[in-house]
């Protein structure tokens, strides 16, 4: 129905519209342009599966919307408390798991089907994604095998702060492995 040549035309026809749309969602022209570019790249890849049930403009906008949602989700995770990515923080569900990010699978149960080397490799990669400070603290706890009290003194942390950091690092590591292994 449509092909890659069409996508090229759609730049002329719809890019301005998409930019206006993106600008209403994020107030950063540079970032918005990046999204428009990504949107067309995705469109090029997906055009063969686009059946024309909606107009090209609607289809392109839906791709763009997904990119913007992802962007905000990632930003929010980084900006706000890590714990609020994993647990509800108000209402009647307060403190219970947010199901999309919960341990619905046990990564320990994958232990047998993944080689020891791969496990360590993946864990390294996941460790790299931790915020710098919690990486340092995890390093002190596990690599240097220091006790909590010692680390608290070195990093000038209260005991409860220390455990909050370890707790969050574990949530992030676990979730990172779950995404890789399931």
């Amino acid at each position: 129905m449509y092909n890659k040549k069409d996508v090229e035309h759609w730049v002329d026809e719809h890019a301005d519209y998409l930019l206006r749309y993106a600008m209403t969602q994020i107030n950063d022209r540079h970032q918005a342009l990046d999204f428009i570019q990504d949107t067309y790249v995705s469109a090029l890849k997906g055009v063969d599966n686009f059946e024309g049930r909606s107009t090209p403009r609607t289809w392109l906008t839906s791709i763009l919307k997904r990119k913007i949602i992802d962007y905000w989700r990632k930003r929010n995770v980084r900006k706000t408390d890590v714990a609020s990515h994993f647990f509800h923080d108000n209402g009647s569900d307060d403190g219970s798991w947010i199901i999309e990010n919960a341990p619905t699978q046990s990564v320990a149960s994958a232990e047998d089907r993944i080689t020891a080397e791969e496990q360590v490799d993946e864990l390294y990669r996941c460790l790299d994604q931790l915020p710098p400070r919690s990486k340092e603290i995890m390093n002190a706890k596990y690599m240097e095998q220091k006790k909590g009290e010692v680390i608290c003194k070195e990093y000038d942390l209260s005991s409860s702060n220390f455990w909050v950091i370890v707790h969050r690092a574990k949530l992030l590591l676990r979730d990172c492995l779950q995404q890789k292994w399931f």
């Binding site: 046990s106 320990a108 149960s109 596990y142 690599m143 949530l171």
Partner: peptide, 18 residues
Amino acid sequence: RNFAKDTAFLDRLLKKIN
């Protein structure tokens, strides 16, 4: 329960890295 299992697993894995 899954979290408890996994955090113990991570402890073992992190020590292996060491």
